[in-house]
């Protein structure tokens, strides 16, 4: 495992834990898209079914279990424990526009027409667009709390670092997975506009707010 990959995983973990802590400490999930969080729970579940079929390493197993556990805890906090603070009126992205096309694409473009492989492919495609309900919510309300911005930044950095990891692996190992690379590129591009706002505003101590 190279450094890009490891830092990518850490960044992903940081994002997930940051969001959990934010909700827990403030006792509120205002400004957080429950729909994006459900999509991420679906992504992890579909992708990590190989926990039951394929052992890779202790690191791999632990990270998968932690991602899944944190993801489901987040969904539970939003839709059950702190339901009263959930901003459903602003969380109006139509998730079927993401789930249906990515599911169809997973059936059409995959490495292997087997249930586990199709689910893995679906999870890769769905992950690349799963943040859209959250970004839509930020654009709708015109602002995001600083901690939510940090969460989004860490989540965007994760896939960006994976792109460098894939370049590294292609160069030194001759390994590449076109499905993951193309989806990872799409995913990273979706964060670009946010990266710009984060660097020009949040890092200068301002709250992220969009021009009206």
């Amino acid at each position: 495992m190279n450094l890009f990959r490891f830092l990518g995983d850490l960044s992903h973990l940081l994002a997930i834990i940051l969001l959990l802590l934010k909700i827990w400490k403030s006792r509120s999930c205002a400004g957080i898209s429950g729909k994006s969080q459900v999509l991420f729970a679906v992504v992890f579940t579909a992708r990590y079914l190989d926990l039951f079929t394929n052992y890779i390493s202790l690191y791999n197993t632990c990270m998968k279990v932690v991602y899944i556990a944190c993801s489901f805890t987040t969904v539970w906090l939003i839709y059950s424990k702190f339901k009263a603070t959930y901003d459903g009126n602003h969380d109006t992205f139509r998730v079927e526009f993401l789930v249906v096309p990515t599911a169809i694409l997973a059936f059409l473009v995959n490495h292997d027409f087997t249930p586990l492989e199709i689910l893995w492919t679906f999870s890769i495609y769905l992950e690349s667009v799963a943040i859209l309900p959250q970004l839509f919510m930020v654009s709708k309300t015109g602002e995001a709390e600083t901690i939510t911005s940090h969460y989004l930044f860490a989540l965007g950095v994760y896939r960006t670092l994976y792109l460098f990891n894939w370049i590294w692996r292609y160069h030194f190992e001759g390994f590449f997975d076109l499905i993951a690379i193309v989806a990872g590129l799409v995913q990273t591009v979706l964060y670009c506009d946010f990266f710009y706002l984060y660097i020009t505003k949040v890092l200068k101590g301002k709250k992220l707010s969009l021009p009206a």
């Binding site: 890779i56 292997d112 087997t114």
Partner: peptide
């Protein structure tokens, strides 16, 4: 190459 293989990435 780009084909189905054990997934070591997260």
């Amino acid at each position: 190459g780009s084909e189905s293989k054990p997934k070591d990435e997260l």
